[in-house]
Design a protein around this nucleic acid. Structure first.
Length: 421
RNA sequence: GUGGGUGUAGCUCAGUCGGUUAGAGCACCUGAUUGUGGUUCAGGGGGUCGUGGGUUCAAAUCCCAUCAUCCACCCCA
């Protein structure tokens, strides 16, 4: 029990990699056909980059969910708990506002959060992240949500639930927070401790409260959607219009709230019912003003992230078929010591065109066939003293069981002609 | 951080009112098979029973602590 990966981290083993590649290839195809460029920011950034982006009242900061450390130069650095801050920093640093607008960026990789683990929640996990910078048009909101839906559908998921809401503009949120404080402060003593904390820091998040007593107090209150100003309201309606036009199934979630402070207007999540309590595959929203607050040019933005492990979990639940790992085209079996050198040399040459494995010690024919069978190869090719005399390989088709003597100079051609049959 | 479940072979697990040398299936290695795979048969390797302490003539089994793991709360990806 000594050799053990750190709590909340996992090895992705060879048998699992094909599923990861399937997700990555489908997502890449979906997003890049829509004009997204892949960006690969560093895994760690200055701590400040994350704190300024997420906000002081976010759980990432408040609950100390970030892996923060000091390097030898006494800089405070943090392993990324999400992609968006790194994308924003890179956008500003490289002057991407001069690129044709809007700029669409996507990325994939590990992120780190110091949370307690459960199904669908890990300390190192992986996200696919997508952001569009430079447009505040409702059309872009709808396009962004549609691409998320298309990407998840492309990997084979069904029965997805898209939840759509709006957190309004900053002044709407301020008005709503004021309203919540007005309504709840007189009876704050009846709220749980965490809810009282939220009432002080970010009242809107009270809507997430699960405590029955808290819910009782909150239920009669108005929702954020009731406080949308005219600009946010018409924006929200137009997004719905587009999604309806494109047949993207969605439902309005009047209580949708984001844990991160930077969201404005459109907010959305995609859920899947079969993967336990952590049912959110993805979350995202609009964040106009974020780049400006980070010292960049005034730039609108919207984006989302999905958790790769959760998507893989959902794929398994939905029975999505994953391509099998590649198997060798041919497996060479040396029947004596001399043949060991011969098949090793032959394998090197054949590998310019085929996938080739071989036994690395001499084998008797029965054992050699067993090696070949277990490699998953289509063909086994035996080499011993008889073959050496004739300059041939004894090639057996492991599916049909038929066998032929093939001159070594024609081995490649022989295999290529038959591998698809 | 809190709560509950579970820790016995690489994997899935049995064994637990305390009692000889701790078991099975799968996987792995060897042989039956000195030129032919999948099936079958025979044999073999592999365990500090998570860890530490306690009770006892005797502990995988009972008690305490601790760690890990799974699920859930919280929050979200």
């Amino acid at each position: 029990m000594k050799s053990q990966a750190v709590k909340g981290t996992h090895d992705i083993l060879p048998a699992q990699v094909p599923a990861w590649r399937l997700v990555e290839s489908k997502v890449r195809e979906t997003l890049e056909r829509a004009g997204a460029g892949e960006i690969r920011p560093p895994v760690f950034e200055h701590t400040e980059t994350f704190v300024k982006t997420a906000g002081e009242s976010s759980d990432l900061v408040v609950q100390k969910e970030m892996y923060t450390f000091e390097d030898r130069g006494e800089r405070s650095l943090t392993l990324r708990p999400e992609f968006t801050p790194g994308f924003m920093r890179a956008f500003i640093q490289h002057g991407m506002h001069t690129l044709p607008s809007p700029v669409r960026l996507w990325g994939m990789g590990p992120v780190f959060r110091a949370e307690n683990v459960q199904r669908g929640r890990f300390r190192q996990f992986h996200q696919v992240n997508y952001e569009v910078l430079g447009s505040d048009a409702p059309l872009i909101d709808a396009e962004t949500i549609a691409l998320l839906y298309d990407a998840l559908t492309a990997v084979g998921l069904r029965n997805l639930t898209v939840k759509l809401g709006s957190v309004g503009d900053p002044e709407d949120r301020a008005a709503y927070n004021d309203y919540l404080r007005r309504e709840l402060e007189p009876q704050a003593g009846r709220l749980t401790e965490t809810s009282q904390e939220r009432l002080r820091l970010n009242p809107m998040r009270l809507l997430d409260a699960k405590d029955p007593g808290d819910q009782e107090l909150i239920r009669p209150l108005k929702r954020p959607l009731d406080f949308l100003g005219e600009p946010a309201r018409s924006h929200f309606e137009e997004v719905q219009q587009w999604l309806g036009d494109w047949n993207i199934p969605f439902e309005i979630d009047p209580a949708i709230v984001r844990g991160l402070d930077y969201y404005r207007r459109t907010a959305f999540e995609v859920h899947h019912g079969g993967i336990g309590a952590q049912s959110a595959l993805s979350g995202g929203g609009r964040y106009d003003g974020l780049i400006e607050s980070l010292g960049g040019p005034k730039t609108a933005g919207i984006g989302w992230a999905f958790g790769v492990e959760r998507v893989l979990d959902a794929m398994a639940v939905d029975g999505v078929e994953v391509p099998a790992p590649t198997v060798p085209d041919v497996f060479l079996v040396p029947l004596d010591e001399t043949a060991v050198a011969e098949v090793a040399a032959a394998a090197r040459l054949l590998r310019s065109d085929l996938s080739v494995q071989h036994s690395v010690i001499k084998r008797n024919p029965g054992r050699g066939m067993k090696d070949a069978d277990r490699s998953g190869a289509r063909f086994a090719a035996l080499r011993g003293d008889r073959e050496r005399e004739l300059g041939t390989y004894e090639v057996k088709d492991l599916i049909s069981g038929s066998q032929e003597s093939v001159p070594e100079t024609q081995l490649l051609q022989y295999l290529q002609e038959r591998e698809d049959r």
